[in-house]
């Protein structure tokens, strides 16, 4: 069955709401309008105004109200529109949601999913194009998911909704319209398990979200030049599937990390540091990072494309290791 990534997310939401009446959806413009990316379209008509609700433009409270509803028995899957806006609610997520159980004890749990659209989208500008996953990777207590395919998006969102822990779920804006094969019916994909998107023997390219597509394109080019690249998609950034990374570099002995966020203090920094601490003996070279330039993303599309990683930048980085 072929569906778009956006439809896969929508299907997961609808199926989970059908399965469990405790699942509710709220956020800015998610009801009659169906969300500004159209993902929640139709839910209001099926599930009604009690379970699908528009909220005020109050990002801090979208998170906090979701958490309070989750604490008391609902399973909110809330939409925060652009993931950039998660920073409006940074304290709410970082201090409250992530730490609530730790601070109050094991009677407390927050089964909540925070969905948000991430990444560059051709001229959305410096406040509507960011990949902020790494900021949240820094605090314990959150599950962070960034799916790269329609199949992963559906299976992982279902797992996220069924999880008793708070989950940040990043959907890449450029992936919403990508149509791909997904399994039929109800299926889940376990949280914390990486996936090898292309097998290879010479180098491991670790990439997330849209960057998986770029890495696959780069791997194709590299193959033509005689370099066999393995593309590893962690799928969940927290918890990180270190074992899958280890297994891959035991075979390839080289690795680069590709991410769309800024390079400094990014996911690549964390993964590279972790690998040199824990897998040093397996590495025949440094773990390089391909990431966005450390500048705010510009509004001008030509300049935006200069900033974010693409397949040529990945090919270039890989070749530097040979």
């Amino acid at each position: 069955m072929q569906v778009t990534y956006g439809q896969a997310v929508a299907d997961a939401l609808r199926e989970e709401m059908e399965r469990d009446e405790m699942v509710v959806v709220f956020g800015e413009d998610v009801a009659q309008h169906g969300g500004i990316f159209g993902i929640t379209r139709g839910l209001y008509e099926i599930f009604g105004e009690d379970r699908v609700k528009n909220t005020p433009i109050s990002e801090t409270s979208i998170i906090g109200v979701g958490a309070g509803a989750a604490l008391t028995g609902l399973r909110p899957c809330i939409e925060l529109m652009y993931s950039d806006f998660l920073l409006v609610a940074f304290s709410e997520i970082y201090h409250c949601v992530a730490k609530w159980r730790f601070m109050h004890g094991d009677q407390y749990k927050i089964p909540m999913v925070i969905r948000a659209a991430a990444g560059s989208a051709f001229g959305a500008g410096a406040e509507h194009s960011n990949c902020v996953e790494s900021l949240f990777m820094h605090t314990p207590g959150l599950i962070i998911i960034s799916p790269s395919t329609a199949a992963d998006a559906k299976g992982l969102l279902k797992s996220a909704i069924r999880s008793d822990n708070p989950v940040l779920f990043f959907e890449h804006k450029q992936l919403y319209q990508v149509k791909e094969e997904i399994p039929e019916g109800d299926y889940t994909i376990p949280i914390g398990v990486a996936d090898i998107k292309r097998e290879g023997t010479d180098i491991t390219i670790i990439a997330m979200g849209l960057m998986v597509k770029k890495a696959l394109a780069a791997a194709e080019k590299l193959a033509a030049e005689g370099i066999s690249a393995e593309v590893l998609d962690p799928r969940t950034i927290a918890p990180l599937d270190k074992e899958a990374i280890r297994k891959s570099v035991e075979k390839t002995h080289r690795a680069i990390v590709v991410e769309e966020g800024n390079k400094t203090g990014g996911i690549g920094a964390e993964i590279a540091a972790m690998m040199q601490e824990e897998m040093y003996d397996e590495l025949d070279g440094p773990v390089l990072r391909v990431a966005a330039l450390d500048v705010p993303l510009p509004y001008d599309v030509a300049l935006e494309l200069v900033c974010v990683p693409n397949e040529d930048k990945i090919v270039e980085a890989v070749k530097a290791l040979f």
């Binding site: 906090g64 109200v65 958490a67 309070g68």
Partner: peptide, 11 residues
């Protein structure tokens, strides 16, 4: 920061 939590419980 906990005031919205209370609102969520009220919902």
């Amino acid at each position: 920061c906990d005031m919205p939590f209370a609102v969520g419980a009220a919902y």
